[in-house]
Every structure is written in C-alpha cells, then in structure tokens.
C-alpha cells in the first residue's frame, strides 16, 4: 500500500518562531494550470505589527555584532540552503519552474548569499571615508544600518528575487519584515526554516505571506519602519511612497532583473545605510611651535 505523504504546513515567520497568522486565514496558491499547490497563511495587519515589533527588538544587537560575525552567519545560511537544495528545487517546480530553471535559481541564490556574506565586513571599509577638513579636526564618515526595513519581494521570482533583496539589507545590520511573493511564496517559507536553523537571530528576518493589496499599507505606513525595499513591478509603489512620507521612510524601488549576475553590488547594501560623519579635534603638537 502506498504510504500517506506528510504534507507541509506553510506558516509565517515572526521573531524566530513559526506562528500561523493571527487572523487564522489562508489562501490557496495556484500554479499556472490554476491547480492548488499549497495552503499559505493570509497574513493580516496585526501580523505586520507583530513582525515589525520583533524586527525592532532584534535590530540593535544584530547591528552591534561584529561585521565579521554577520558574514559568518550569512555564510551559514548559504550552507544550510545548499543542504536543502532539493526541497527548494521541488517547490520551485511546483511554482512552474522547469527543473533546470529551478536548479539555476537555487544555485544563483546560494551564490548570491555567499556574495553578500563576503561584503559584511568590507562594504564599510570600501564606502567610508576620512574627510580632509580644513580645520584642526579628524573627520570620518561611515555607514550604519537604517534599522527596520520592509521588503516587498519580487513577485515573479520564487527565491532569487527575495534573496537578492534580503541579503544586502541584513548584511548591513538591518532587520526586516518581508512580504513574500504572493504567487510564489513557498520558498520564502522554506527559507525561513533555513534561516531559523542557521545562526540568524530570531527577529532579524520576519517573513509574511499574503495579499500585497492588504499588506502594503500597514507596512509602509508603520512609523517604526525606517525603509522600504520594493519590487519595481509592485502596482502599489505610488501608494507605498505616499504612505512612507509620514516618518520619511527611505523607499528604494528595484526594477532590476535579479537573475542577472551583475544585479548585485555594494550599492544594494548602502541603499539601506545611513552615513554618519564624526568630528573630533586634533591637537597639533608637532614642532612645539609658538602656537601654544
């Protein structure tokens, strides 16, 4: 007799835990043939609230970790993902990827994570500056994470789009709340499991599934979210930008085709950084001149 397969429940990921949506709702994800492939949580505004709260709580200590350590954690994500690549390929195939496409998507995603893992302790070195001011001061500018970032993931991509938007955000020390692709959410949830079993502290990444038309508003209007990263094909962009005005969220719109190798780089990290410039006097002692 054929064994009864254990089906997976796709939950959301908040504060390092896998709750069901507080609303108790779900939606059916359909493939191209309109055949249901899974039931997925239909998150509500309260889930957004909980996720932002968790993200805020986790952000400070994530930022304060040594950049080197963040790099190790990101690399660990790649390792864990590599170990579960078969599952990701399978899920992508459910979402209408061919096997080859799915394999490429997973390969590229792993490589992209490794790429950003390497940036953690380098981007600030590359992009900071010591500024030669004319007065007797030491002056330098370096980057700090913005804080909590809302990510509205690429709709058309099951994994690589999400990874390409997520990694630069956390590589730079931010925490985030992700609204997964509404059409292809399976890998997002599985990625949450990968994150949870790697060393990413709970709350640094929070992943919600559901309808964008319901979730864009609570996320982009939330006063404790510092920035928004959104897919350029998101039809709510203008509304997101308007809702972001109240606390002047930094909104970044990406129309990039993340399947291309070149669509990665330091600028995706600094997009969610604040530049801080610090001054301190320099006592000129050389020469024991008569200046004293």
């Amino acid at each position: 007799m054929k064994r009864v397969e254990v089906l997976k429940t796709y939950k959301i990921y908040i504060g390092g835990k896998f709750p069901r949506t507080e609303s108790g709702r779900f939606y059916k994800v359909l493939n191209k043939a309109e055949k249901p492939i899974a039931n997925v949580c239909l998150s509500s505004r309260k889930d957004v609230r909980n996720a932002v709260q968790a993200a805020r709580k986790a952000q400070g200590s994530w930022q304060e970790r040594a950049a080197f350590n963040r790099g190790q954690v990101l690399y660990r994500i790649a390792e864990m993902l590599e170990g579960r690549r078969a599952q990701f390929v399978e899920e992508l195939m459910l979402e209408d990827y061919t096997k080859k496409e799915a394999q490429t998507e997973v390969d590229n995603s792993i490589d992209r994570i490794v790429y950003y893992a390497g940036w953690c302790d380098k981007f600030n070195q590359v992009a900071s500056s010591v500024n030669p001011v004319s007065s007797s001061h030491f002056n330098f500018s370096s980057y700090e994470p913005m804080g909590v970032i809302g990510i509205m993931a690429v709709k058309s991509s099951g994994l690589l789009g999400l990874v390409s938007m997520l990694m630069p955000v956390i590589a730079g020390g931010n925490s985030c709340v992700i609204i997964a692709s509404e059409d292809k959410p399976l890998c997002a949830v599985t990625l949450a499991e990968v994150l949870n079993s790697s060393d990413v502290p709970g709350g640094v990444v929070n992943i919600l599934t559901g309808h964008m038309d319901e979730l864009w508003s609570p996320l982009s209007s939330h006063m404790d979210v510092n920035g928004i990263s959104t897919d350029g094909r998101n039809k709510y962009i203008t509304k997101v930008q308007l809702a972001s005005v109240d606390n002047l969220k930094r909104v970044r719109v990406y129309s990039n085709d993340f399947s291309l190798m070149q669509e990665q780089g330091i600028q995706f990290i600094t997009d969610f950084q604040e530049l801080k410039t610090t001054w301190h006097p320099i006592e000129k002692i050389g020469g024991a001149s008569n200046s004293y």
Partner: peptide, 11 residues
C-alpha cells in the same frame, strides 16, 4: 580637581 582643557577649543 582641574578641568581638562581641549587645546583646539581654546584656539
């Protein structure tokens, strides 16, 4: 105790 002096500030 004497306060510390920042020379650049004095200048």
């Amino acid at each position: 105790p004497s306060p510390s002096i920042d020379k650049v500030g004095v200048e």
